[in-house]
Amino acid sequence: MRHGRNRFIVSFLAAPVAIYLIFVIWPYVQAIGLSMTDWSGLTPTQDFTGFANYIRLAHDPVFWLSLWHNVILLIVLPLITLTLGLFFAFMINVGGRKRKNQTVAGVRGSKLYQVVYFFPQVLSITVIAVLWGAIYNPNNGALNSGLRAIGIPSTISWLSDPKLALGCVIAVMVWWQVGFYVVLFSAGMSAIPDEIYEAVLLDGANRFTTFFKITFPLIWDTIQTGWVYLGIIAMDGFAIVQIMTNGPGGPDGATTVVPFYLWDSAFNHGQAGYGISMGVAMLIVTLLFAVLTLRFSRRERIEF
């Protein structure tokens, strides 16, 4: 039996582990070494150049501009998305007309709202980027013609204006992500026992106090997870920038982000080694962000 057990374990693990090692782990391991070479990606050989790529990176204004845009996304995207998500989830769960036997009531059709809000979340980011690219089109786009329809004569070239382009990218990302957090926070809020709401409402608290003193602290864990998730998305942004923005990369690099610059360097300009060193830089920033978020957002966990 013992023998059969071991053979079973090996036979079940062999294929998944092999695929995982070859196509996931091995490229990651290679990346660290290749980032220290002058490899173009076109030649079979490459020379070891030590930290030359990283030094070049440190003096590359396009890289810093790209990283700066990712940092803006890292701060602005979670802030807007989580605020809207919390607000909508609170409205859905607590904003309803009071019914018999219920202290706090969800609005009518709360399920329907959640289903609709979740729509963008299931769409491919490609679809979203193409759709919004068309919406922002200054001539026949939905946005300008919609504005004209309500009396605002808008001829704004949303994506060709360096001042507006990044904001447009952020708006699309918010539109894409909010629904996920409405659903997530709704689940968290409906798990809060009714008795807690009853108690504070009896004490004369209004809904705003209820939100900040009860709801918010009780779903803090979920908010924190959401922040990390959105941080990971903010470090990406590739597909929207590559498909939707002019250039791509925006006018004067107004919307370029690190993943886009990485892909562009490695696959369009034959600088594989340099591109990979940007990947390493991204990994460091991502880890730093995750550690900082978890460090500074730690609160005492409330069990209920």
Partner: peptide
């Protein structure tokens, strides 16, 4: 070890593996 190897894959950015993966 195998379990954590799998789990660790959730945290790395795909962009880091992208170029070597192409050559694999």
């Amino acid at each position: 070890i195998i379990y954590f190897l799998f789990i660790s894959g959730m945290t790395f950015p795909v962009f880091l593996a992208l170029v070597p993966l192409f050559f694999v």
